Amino acid sequence: MSRISPPWLVVVDAQRIFADPASEWYAPRFAETVEPIRELVAAHEGRVVQTRWVPPHAKHGSWVPYFERFPFADRSPFDPIFDVVDEIAELRLPHTVSEPTFGKWGEHLRDVVGQDAHLVLAGVSTDCCVLSTALAAADAGCLVEVVADACAGSSDDAHERALAAMELYAPQIQVRR
């Protein structure tokens, strides 16, 4: 497998909804990911995409019971709770992809990075959006690296279980610890 272009860093959902201790979706080690993410951004020389989870406009199928369970997140996609945290926003990353899905691999991200991209993933939560993005991207033919210390899960145990699950997909997904 030849890779002509350098990898793309994808900063998955570094948003207030995951950073705020008052949020039901708080990732307890979120703050610990900020410096590793900033270092990765510097190392990827503009080949960086940040993603944002936003609620779907119309709730259908499995999203109906999901929002019954998490009504606090059923807000306008423009609500400040969905903003990228200040420490990442101040980096003025060149690309943003907002999706109403846990996994961010899809048409919009592919349009930025290319079909068979080499992706380096960082962000939150390891056990939801990072995992969903990694699996879909690998399935589509991307080489995926997940930087463990630049990710945070809903708990330490969930973080480790998600990393272990992604390690099962080697060599398509590689976890850097």
Rank of each mutant, 00 (worst) to 15 (best):
D79C: 08
P65S: 06
L168C: 14
P80E: 08
V64I: 15
T133S: 14
F102T: 12
L163C: 07
R176E: 12
P80W: 10
A164S: 15
V84D: 03
A31Y: 04
V144T: 06
H159M: 09
D13R: 00
S98P: 01
H159P: 08
E24R: 15
E90Y: 02
W53A: 03
R110S: 11
P55K: 04
Q115E: 15
W53L: 10
A122S: 14
T33I: 06
T33A: 10
W63N: 05
V11H: 01
A58F: 10
V48K: 01
S155T: 14
T101H: 12
G141N: 04
H118A: 11
E167Q: 15
V11T: 00
P171H: 09
F102A: 15
C151P: 00
L40H: 04
P94S: 05
A165L: 14
D86C: 05
L91S: 03
L121V: 05
S62K: 12
W8T: 03
D139N: 15
V64W: 07
R52T: 00
C128R: 11
P65R: 07
A14K: 04
L135H: 07
R47D: 06
A170N: 11
P65I: 00
T51R: 03
S5E: 15
P80L: 10
F70G: 09
L143F: 13
E32R: 12
G153A: 03
L109Y: 06
C142I: 09
S23G: 08
D139S: 14
I173F: 06
E24N: 10
A136N: 09
T101N: 04
S125V: 14
R177A: 14
Y66M: 09
P6E: 15
R47S: 00
G103D: 06
M166Q: 06
P21W: 09
A134F: 07
R176S: 13
L135W: 06
L109V: 06
V146W: 01
S155K: 05
R38Q: 14
R69Q: 15
D127K: 05
P71K: 09
A134H: 04
Y26P: 01
V48P: 02
L163S: 08
V120N: 03
R16E: 14
S98Q: 02
V112I: 08
G46K: 01
A158F: 10
